[in-house]
Amino acid sequence: TQLADQKTLARQIYDAYLKNFSMNKAKARTILTGKTSTPPFVIHDMETLQLAEQTLVAKMVGSAGALKDREVEVRIFHCCQCTSVETVTELTEFAKSVPGFSSLDLNDQVTLLKYGVYEAIFAMLASCMNKDGLLVAYGSGFITREFLKSLRRPVSDMMEPKFQFAMKFNALELDDSDLALFVAAIICCGDRPGLVNVTHIEEMQENIVHVLQLHLLANHPDDTFLFPKLLQKLADLRELVTEHAQLVQEIKKTEDTSLHPLLQEIYRDMY
């Protein structure tokens, strides 16, 4: 019975993942390995960026709006924010589908999301990355790592640490069923600051982490150390988010640009 319950939980979380995220690793890999009929539009300089802005992300950048005359760094930062806001929305719906999450104290649900969403975003972003660049605009565009690096500081410093993390993370060769449980484990984390009902969340976390361990053993029988390696990634992601939060504050100041209210809520008093 216990084994059946664990398999059910793994399945429920995987189904919630497939249902709620518009992009997943299987889709991203199909595009990145050139197996789609139309390859993504490659953004590698100012000219290709402008073309992409007019077509792929016209709605996002508000082509007729206030950002049209702003510098490239500000426009790219704005696009990153839009993508983050969408993924936070998807993550919220995903979290609600994780058994037990919705019956937690509402303030604890908020705390879990506040601290978990960026770790989850960077873990899932790796699926859209290879060593040369990153899929954007639902896979219709591909922005090169070199172009992002060529931008003016501090915006140029924003993505490079995520690429470095992604290259190591992608070497673990997780699939979407593994990632679904990993993302659930990131969100249901008992040691976030300010949680009220820690015991309840720790029980949920233990359950999910145990299911993750069993799932990895079955899904990757040749990689016996995959589970401890993934636990280490949880710590790496926390560090990545701390650095990112500091960088965003710096960008906000130096570029004189605003943050989306949802992201403001998440970053405020975070670490």
Binding site: V85, K96, L106, V110, L113, K114, P261, E265, D269
Partner: peptide, 20 residues
């Protein structure tokens, strides 16, 4: 609660933050 108004709203219904 006021500090995380949008997160509360997202958790309680499916309002898109873009529309808020």
């Amino acid at each position: 609660k006021e500090k995380h108004k949008i997160l509360h709203q997202l958790l309680q219904n499916s309002t898109s933050p873009v529309d808020l």
